[in-house]
Design a protein around this nucleic acid. Sequence first.
DNA 1: TATCCGTGGCC
DNA 2: TGGCCAAGGAT
Length: 374
Amino acid sequence: MTRKSKSEFGQSPLAKSLAKSLLDWYDRARRDLPWRAPPGAKPDPYAVWLSEVMLQQTTVAAVKTYYEKFLALWPGVRDLAAAPLDDVLKAWAGLGYYSRARNLHACAQKIVAEHGGAFPAQESELRRLPGVGPYTAGAIAAIAFDQPTPAVDGNVERVVARLLALETPMPAAKRAIFDFVAAVLPRDRPGDFAQAMMDLGATVCAPRAPSCLICPLATFCRARTASPQDFPKKPPKKARPFKRGAAFVLRRADGALLARRRPERGLLGGMTEFFGSDWREGRADDWADKRGRERSPCERANWRLAGEIDHVFTHFALRLTVFVGAAPADFLAPDGGFWLAADELRAAAFPSLMRKVEACALKAWGLPEPIKPA
DNA sequence: TATCCGTGGCC
DNA sequence: TGGCCAAGGAT
């Protein structure tokens, strides 16, 4: 959905001058990234899409290894569409925001089923794909298909908010920022313009300590002479609740661990976890008394305390008390539970939280901690 | 519009 | 039990 914009900036000599300054800088200073086509080469829409989804609210440094892994496992969209969802979740484990992995898989299948295996070039069509929102649709259209479509992410919001010294706080300022980008983006190199804005935001117009002295847009920037780090204006954040819970790691004689699958929706949806209590704010240590123990997956495991682990999610912090136990020889996995063999643990769909629990349990047993997965 | 949804690095 | 931030999307 493109908005009509009649900014006095559009088509103006000033707008053209700004775009030229940015593109000249980009030709000198562009980052070399694994998913980025060399200058002049045609980008692979699959690679652009995959990288853009991974980069949603995620740093470039964190994405790189995952991107390479995914491309090696599934070189094209048909390969990804044909893969079992569980394999995709295992490969995504540790990257966070797991609904992205589920939407990624669903999107690949939709591309194959409804688009003949080729990504559509129009922003309006891209927008209909699962996991593809306003930003990602604009980014794919611009970068992969060179469409003159705004791609407004956090970097661009910051750059524009400073250029205009926008007093309107986020997210109310989104409309004005979108309109500005729509008016300024050049018709000849819209893909490079989109990437240049993001590179500028990532390397020069950084959130704190922006490098205004080397900024190619400094002469256009209203905030430069004031305090650029104060833009964009943002509302204060809510306090983060603190929750507690317990995790029970049950080990079989052959080294297998008891696990289960989390519900498909919600927090860590579809991922693998150890058994445990629910997580509640301000709860007492009620899993340590007799009734609490009865909620463990096995009453005859001689549970003992392994330790505590801390983890911080976006909207709450969590402290988990970890118990370890040994499964009796005749113990059968309860409903919803399954055994993860020792040689399956490294490839399991454990989120980072559960990797912490696992490490805590292994330490309590005196077992060596595995090297970080490749 | 506001809330939910991960993780790791940096200050 | 810090706070902030990162190429946002779904509901």
